[in-house]
Simulated assay, not measured.
Amino acid sequence: MSEPTLKIRKAAGALGAEISGVDLSKELSDETIAAIRAAFVEHQVVFFRDQALSPERQVAFGRRFGPLNIHPYVSGMAGHPEVMEIVKEPEDRLNFGGGWHSDMSFLEHPSIGSILYGVEIPEWGGDTLFASQAAAYEALTPGMQATLEGLNAVHTASREYSSRGASAQKRKSMSVVEAEGAVGEFIHPVVKVHPETGRKALYVNPAFTVRFEGWSKRESRPLLEFLFDHCRYEAFTCRFSWAKGSVAMWDNRSVWHFALNDYPGQRRHMRRVTVDEVPAEARAAAE
């Protein structure tokens, strides 16, 4: 069987590319997976059209990039705990993911990336915005870059998944539990060096970053608010318009995303798998 010829077309200046010429439901060769990963790393978010992915095939594709995450607060699909079904029913007011964020930074070892598949798409609306945090870092002055490189930030799920958090709000077709008690706080550098490219990116998160290490929330607020505003600047973004069978795969190490909630009275059904980071000590042991 001949190898598929991937065609890669840039989607915007800062990030994003559409890949065609591959069927993700098939068992792909190591060479094809390597080519997809290279495009993913280079462009930070990649898109595929006209795919037909069963939950099993989406899981199989995701596992080619690393172990899959089981979300601690959102129930997975029956029989496939790694698959998160993200559904907004016509009567739901809030969508899931409706604010700028990166996935899973509240974990000790955050995710590498997420793979989202469009099952049912509204007639209009429901696009997803993406923002390059590498471009955001590179646009800062050298003085601000030097200041931030000496900082770490505290990430936690306690706010977003509390009773008042947007992610924990009730939705008809999703089962989300509140983060009660001590859910943990984890420290990550504010400037993250991408392990595969060496490119630096900002790593703060409006959903999960609560303060800088060693700073109070009050002291942290002005600088965090500056960064949250800076990081979503239009020149750092691209926008993806979904269709049934579309796939988006983004790098949580250097990308924010925002699911627009602009399709009232319509249903939107997506399936997501998230690829976990393998801790350095585990990689060393495997080698």
Rank of each mutant, 00 (worst) to 15 (best):
Q58I: 00
A34Y: 09
A60D: 05
S20T: 15
P222C: 11
G125N: 04
F96I: 03
V204A: 04
G245F: 01
E31C: 07
Y263E: 04
H43R: 08
C238R: 07
H101N: 08
G125Q: 01
A52D: 11
L6C: 09
N152Q: 14
T274L: 03
E138R: 00
E42S: 11
Q169C: 02
V278W: 03
A282Y: 01
R267N: 02
N95S: 11
V154K: 06
K26V: 10
F48M: 03
T128Y: 07
E180R: 14
R63Q: 15
Y233E: 10
A182P: 13
S29G: 13
R63M: 13
A243S: 09
S246T: 11
S111L: 11
A179K: 07
Q133E: 09
Q169P: 00
T147K: 15
H188A: 14
H230M: 10
G99K: 04
V46R: 14
E18R: 10
R283S: 10
W256A: 02
G143R: 10
L148G: 03
R63I: 12
N252W: 12
V247S: 01
V87F: 00
E281A: 09
A14E: 08
S20E: 15
G198T: 12
H269M: 01
P195T: 07
R63P: 05
Q145S: 06
P264N: 10
A207F: 04
V177I: 14
G214M: 03
E91V: 15
T32A: 05
R239D: 12
S111V: 10
H257N: 11
S216N: 03
E89Q: 09
P264G: 11
G265K: 04
K192Y: 14
A14I: 12
